[in-house]
């Protein structure tokens, strides 16, 4: 039996790729792997986020807890998060989680001195490490129009109000708190397989065809203006809502169309918060999943314990 393998060889095809967006096909594997990837991307790929806030002065209208919560939710660039240490298993610091290997310090110092309301934003957060900074959502197009992007607003100050604080950012995962989740949206759909019964369809009048095509809320089918034939224009627009099947039934034409979900073919859509690139998010998820599997391997002593039991086991098997 040794050496026998039930391994699969999944295939990937990237359809669209932006910094914070990726769309790709995943084939020749099953839903468990696709879903494990989705779950890991949401809950277990590490990023860096503000976890501890020491407030020195806060005369703003928002209270300390409120500001701390808002700071935590600001996405920070986390490209080195995979190699960073979790502060709970960092041995460089004495468990206080404030050393350079497991944390990044931020400072914020803002005071409103004019009559105009001052927006304190993520750009006012000064990082001690240039690799970990608040994500820049500046749209390059906005710079051209002179409309400067100011980052994520933390609080607004009026004249005389002040906010001064020190914040520690740490590595974490989405399971601990959603602020560490690098994923805005991760979703996949099963690729649909659509078979139109051409013979039955051909017997329909144009009105009937039209009514049937329009019964789908999404534009999956259309009528070819030249031939008058019903064609599938966008398979993937189908959301498994069964509306066309119900319509066919209502028209007295069950079996007009047959739709199956392929069990081994998925279309993923990944959107990142900006903490890491969407493509990196997928790669990190694979890596994290590999590490998880490695951790659940049986340890040596378990195997030994079973070997000692083995004689009896063999006896049982023999009997």
């Amino acid at each position: 039996m040794e050496g026998m393998s039930y391994q699969r060889f999944p295939k990937v095809k990237i359809r669209e790729l932006k910094d914070d967006y990726a769309k790709f096909e995943l084939r020749d594997t099953d839903s468990s792997v696709a879903n494990a990837l989705r779950r890991v991307m949401i809950a277990e790929v590490p990023t860096v986020a503000i976890d501890l806030v020491e407030i020195e002065v806060n005369s703003s209208v928002l209270n300390d807890e409120f500001i701390a919560h808002r700071l935590g939710l600001i996405p920070l660039t986390s490209d080195n998060a995979m190699s960073m240490r979790f502060s709970r298993d960092c041995d460089a610091c004495d468990g206080d989680g404030q050393c350079e290997y497991c944390s990044v310090e931020f400072h914020l110092n803002a005071k409103c001195r004019t009559d105009q309301t001052l927006d304190v934003t993520s750009k006012d957060l000064i990082s001690a490490d240039h690799r970990v900074t608040p994500v820049d959502f500046g749209d390059p197009a906005a710079y051209d129009s002179g409309d400067q992007q100011r980052g994520i607003i933390i609080v607004k100050l009026r004249r005389g109000q002040e906010l001064r604080l020190r914040a520690i950012a740490r590595k974490g995962i989405g399971k601990d708190h959603a602020k560490w989740s690098p994923a805005a949206t991760v979703t996949f759909m099963y690729e649909p397989e659509i078979h139109i019964n051409e013979e039955m369809m051909g017997n329909l009048t144009l009105e009937e065809k039209k009514a049937w095509v329009e019964s789908s809320p999404t534009r999956v089918f259309d009528i070819d203006p030249n031939t008058g034939q019903v064609v599938v224009v966008d398979r993937e627009a189908y959301t498994y809502d069964d509306e066309v099947l119900k319509k066919a039934e209502a028209m007295g034409k069950p079996g007009l169309v047959e739709i199956y979900a392929k069990e081994d073919s998925f279309i993923f859509t990944v959107e990142s918060t900006g903490a890491i690139k969407a493509s990196q998010l997928v790669l990190n998820a694979i890596e994290v999943l590999k590490q998880k599997l490695d951790a659940v391997r049986l340890s040596e002593d378990t195997v030994e314990a079973d070997d000692q039991f083995g004689e009896l086991g063999a006896h049982m098997r023999g009997g």
Partner: peptide, 24 residues
């Protein structure tokens, strides 16, 4: 069977990773 499953999954993820990297 348990060990086999983990090994197979590990190899599958390796394949997936290189496939994704190549596409990238």
């Amino acid at each position: 069977a348990y060990n086999q499953a983990i090994n197979d999954l590990d190899k599958e993820l390796d394949t997936l990773k290189s496939a994704f990297e190549a596409e990238l």
